[in-house]
C-alpha cells in the first residue's frame, strides 16, 4: 500500500522520469553467475551497512545505555525513556515542534495550492512568478538564515523593526520574545517552503484531464463547484504526499532554530521558546554528551514520525476505494 502511494507521488513529480513501483519484482531473468552483479552492488552495500543499518541498530542499543562518550556504555534498561517522559524540557521541545509542524504544514499546503492555482499557467508572467516563489528552494540554506537573522535584528536598524517604526511602534526583540519564537520559525519555514509546495501542486493540477472541466462546464457547474468537486478530490494524492513529506521534514527542523535562536548557553532561545526535538537531541548528545539519552530522543522522534506517516496514509485513503 505504501509502495503504491510513493509510486503515485513519484510519477507526478518525477518530471520526464517514468516512475512506477507497481511491479516491485526485479526482472524475472535468472543469471547463471552472480559474481559481477554482486561486485557492482558491493560498494553501496558496504556503505549502507556501515553508515545506515549499523547506526540505526547501534542507536537503538545506545538508547538503553548510559553512554557518555567516555566510559563504556552500560545497559540501564528503559531508564532513558522513563526519564524522558518526566523531562519538562522534552515536553517543551515536543510541544514546540508539534505547533511548528502543524502550522507549517497547514500554511504551506494552503498557500502552495493557492499559488499553484493563481500562477500555474503557461504565460511568461506566470512563469516569472513561479520562479520568484521557487527562489528560496534554490538559494536558501544557511546563507538565507543569516540574512533572516539580520532582518530580525532587535535594534532600530533591523529592517523589520524599522517597518514597525513607520507605524510609530517600538522595536521588538523578534528572536528574544518567547511568545513570538514559534511564529518566527514558522514564518521563515513558510517563506522557504511554499514555492516548492506550489511546484508540486502545479504538477498535480496539470495531471487533471481538461475534459473533466469541459464536461462539468457543459453540465453547468460553477467555477467554485468545479474546484471543490473536481480539482480538490483529484489532487488528493499530491496533497497527501505534500502533507506526509512536509510533516516528516518539519519534525526534523534543526537549522532554523539552531541558527536563529541558538546562543552561547542554550540551543533553544529564551526560556526554550524555540527548542525543537532535534535541537534538544543535539543539546543532550553533543552539548552534554549524554549520548544514551540523546539516542532515546532520536528513537522517540522516529516513532512519532513513523506513527504520523501511518495516520496520514490512513486518513488519506479514499473512502470509496477498498484497501489493497
Amino acid at each position: 500500500m505504501r509502495n503504491d502511494k510513493m509510486g503515485l507521488a513519484a510519477s507526478t513529480v518525477g518530471g520526464g522520469v517514468k516512475v512506477t513501483l507497481g511491479s516491485a519484482q526485479p526482472s524475472r531473468r535468472v543469471r547463471r553467475s552472480f559474481t559481477i552483479p554482486l561486485l557492482l552492488l558491493l560498494p553501496f552495500m558496504v556503505l549502507f551497512a556501515a553508515f545506515v543499518l549499523y547506526p540505526v541498530i547501534n542507536s537503538l542499543y545506545l538508547s538503553f545505555t548510559n553512554y557518555n562518550a567516555i566510559s563504556a556504555p552500560k545497559l540501564i534498561g528503559i531508564a532513558n525513556y522513563t526519564d524522558l517522559l518526566q523531562d519538562p524540557r522534552f515536553y517543551k521541545a515536543l510541544g514546540n515542534t508539534a505547533l511548528f509542524v502543524v502550522s507549517v504544514v497547514v500554511i504551506n499546503t494552503v498557500l502552495g495550492l493557492t499559488l499553484a492555482v493563481v500562477f500555474g499557467g503557461e504565460g511568461v508572467w506566470d512563469q516569472v512568478m513561479r520562479a520568484v516563489f521557487f527562489l528560496p528552494s534554490v538559494a536558501g540554506g544557511i546563507a538565507i538564515l543569516a540574512v533572516w537573522k539580520w532582518i530580525l535584528n532587535s535594534e532600530g536598524y533591523g529592517i523589520l523593526n524599522a517597518a514597525r517604526g513607520l507605524f510609530g511602534l517600538a522595536p521588538i526583540t523578534w528572536l528574544g520574545t518567547p511568545s513570538l519564537a514559534i511564529a518566527m520559525l514558522v514564518m521563515v519555514a513558510v517563506w522557504g517552503g511554499m514555492g516548492g509546495t506550489m511546484i508540486l501542486f502545479v504538477a498535480g493540477l496539470r495531471a487533471i484531464p481538461s475534459e473533466l472541466y469541459e464536461a462539468a462546464a457543459i453540465d453547468g457547474a460553477t467555477p467554485s463547484q468545479r474546484f471543490w468537486k473536481i480539482t480538490l478530490p483529484l489532487l488528493r494524492p499530491t496533497m497527501l504526499y505534500i502533507i506526509i513529506t512536509g510533516t516528516i521534514g518539519a519534525f526534523q527542523v534543526f537549522n532554523e532554530p539552531y541558527l536563529l535562536f541558538g546562543g552561547v548557553s542554550s540551543v533553544g532561545g529564551l526560556l526554550d521558546s524555540a527548542l525543537t526535538l532535534v535541537t534538544y537531541l543535539y543539546d543532550r548528545g553533543f552539548g552534554r554528551f549524554q549520548l544514551g539519552y540523546a539516542s532515546a530522543v532520536a528513537w522517540v522522534l522516529f516513532i512519532i514520525v513513523f506513527a504520523l506517516t501511518l495516520i496520514n496514509l490512513r486518513l488519506g485513503e479514499p473512502e470509496d476505494r477498498t484497501s489493497e
Binding site: 547506526p55 542507536s59 526534523q252 532535534v278 548528545g285 540523546a294 522522534l301 522516529f302 514520525v305
Partner: peptide, 9 residues
C-alpha cells in the same frame, strides 16, 4: 527513518 537517528552512532 529520520536520518538524525544515525548521527550519534
Amino acid at each position: 527513518i529520520p536520518w538524525q537517528v544515525t548521527i550519534i552512532p
